[in-house]
Amino acid sequence: AQASVVANQLIPINTYLTLVMMRSEVVTPVGIPAEDIPRLVSMQVNRAVPLGTTLMPDMVKGYA
């Protein structure tokens, strides 16, 4: 199964992502692939992302 990117903490709206904020986990539904974690660093979330939430492409500015 493919691992997705999951929030490792509460990520406030407009926060620039860093490695410590994200982890990879096999979840349903599938979100942003874990292999894209390096690409996500320094990208901004466009909403608050609670701890344990799967990151979806529409949550990250400029990802989709």
Rank of each mutant, 00 (worst) to 15 (best):
I13V: 15
P29A: 08
V30T: 14
P57R: 13
P38A: 07
P50T: 11
A34M: 07
L40H: 00
M43W: 08
V20F: 15
E25H: 06
S4G: 04
A1Q: 07
V41G: 03
V20A: 11
V20L: 10
A7V: 07
V5W: 02
V45G: 01
L17S: 00
Y63V: 04
M59F: 08
T54D: 01
V30Q: 09
M22G: 00
P29Y: 04
G52A: 11
T54F: 02
A3W: 08
R23I: 05
M21H: 15
K61T: 14
Y16T: 12
G62L: 13
P33S: 10
T53Q: 13
S4V: 02
T15Q: 12
N46H: 13
V5Y: 01
T28Q: 14
S4F: 03
Y16F: 12
T15I: 05
G62K: 06
P38H: 15
P33V: 08
M56A: 07
R39T: 09
Y63E: 03
E35F: 06
V41M: 09
T18S: 15
M22D: 00
I13A: 15
P57T: 07
L17Y: 01
T53K: 08
G31V: 02
S24I: 15
V27S: 05
T28P: 02
L40A: 01
P50A: 14
A3F: 09
T54H: 05
T53N: 09
V5S: 04
Q9V: 14
Y63N: 05
P33N: 15
P12G: 12
V20S: 15
Q44S: 09
I37W: 02
I13C: 04
T28G: 06
M21T: 03
V5T: 12
L51C: 03
T53C: 04
E35G: 09
T15K: 05
M21E: 02
V26T: 09
L40N: 00
V26M: 12
V30F: 15
A7Y: 01
Y63T: 04
E35R: 04
I32F: 03
V27D: 02
M22C: 03
V30S: 14
R39M: 10
E25P: 02
Y16Q: 08
V41T: 12
P29H: 06
P12W: 11
L40S: 00
Y16G: 12
A1P: 15
Q9M: 15
T54P: 07
V45I: 13
T18W: 03
A48R: 08
P33T: 08
D58A: 14
G52C: 04
V6Y: 02
A34V: 10
I32K: 01
V41I: 08
M22Y: 02
I11L: 08
R47G: 06
Q2F: 13
G31F: 02
T18M: 14
S42M: 13
N14E: 13
N8W: 08
S42H: 15
V27M: 06
I11W: 01
V5K: 01
Q9A: 15
Q9D: 11
A3C: 05
S24Q: 09
I13Q: 13
A1R: 02
Y16P: 14
V49E: 01
G62E: 13
R39L: 10
V6A: 04
V49W: 02
N8T: 11
L17I: 14
R47S: 10
N46G: 12
S42L: 13
L55C: 02
D58H: 10
A64F: 04
D58V: 13
M59S: 07
N14Q: 10
I37D: 00
A48W: 07
M21D: 05
M43E: 05
Q44D: 02
K61E: 08
A64N: 10
I13F: 12
P33Q: 04
M21N: 05
S42V: 07
T18V: 05
T18H: 13
V20P: 13
P12K: 07
N14P: 00
L40P: 00
S24P: 11
R47E: 12
P57G: 08
I13N: 07
V20D: 07
M59I: 07
D58F: 12
P29V: 05
V6M: 06
Y16K: 06
T53I: 14
L40I: 12
P57Y: 06
N46K: 09
A48N: 10
A64C: 09
A64Y: 03
V5L: 04
V60E: 00
A1T: 15
N14T: 04
L10N: 12
V49H: 02
R39I: 13
V27L: 12
I32R: 01
L51P: 14
V5R: 01
M56D: 11
I32W: 02
M21C: 03
V41S: 08
E25D: 14
I32T: 02
V26A: 15
I32V: 11
G52I: 02
Y63S: 04
R23P: 00
M56H: 14
P12V: 05
V49G: 00
T54V: 10
R47I: 08
P57E: 06
L55G: 01
P29W: 04
R39E: 04
P57F: 07
V30P: 10
N14A: 09
S4I: 01
P29G: 04
A7M: 08
N8L: 11
I37Y: 02
S42C: 06
T54A: 07
E35M: 05
P57K: 06
M22E: 00
P50Q: 08
P12D: 11
L19F: 12
N46C: 03
L55E: 01
L40Y: 02
T53H: 09
T15Y: 13
I11V: 14
I13T: 11
T54I: 11
T15C: 03
M22F: 10
V41L: 15
D36H: 10
A3M: 14
I32A: 03
Y16A: 15
V45R: 00
Q2K: 04
V27Q: 13
V6K: 05
Q9S: 10
G31T: 02
Y16S: 10
A3D: 14
V6E: 01
R39W: 06
A48C: 04
M59R: 03
V5A: 13
L19D: 03
Q2R: 03
A7E: 01
I37L: 15
T53G: 11
Q2P: 15
P33G: 08
Q9R: 08
L10D: 15
V45W: 01
Q44E: 12
P57S: 06
M22K: 00
A7W: 02
N46R: 09
S42F: 10
V5C: 04
R39G: 10
V60L: 14
N46Y: 14
V6S: 03
L40T: 01
I32Y: 02
R39D: 03
A34F: 09
G31N: 01
E35T: 09
A3N: 13
T15V: 14
L19A: 15
V49D: 01
T54G: 03
V41P: 03
M56N: 07
Y63F: 10
L19V: 14
M21V: 05
L17P: 02
P57M: 10
G52H: 07
N46T: 13
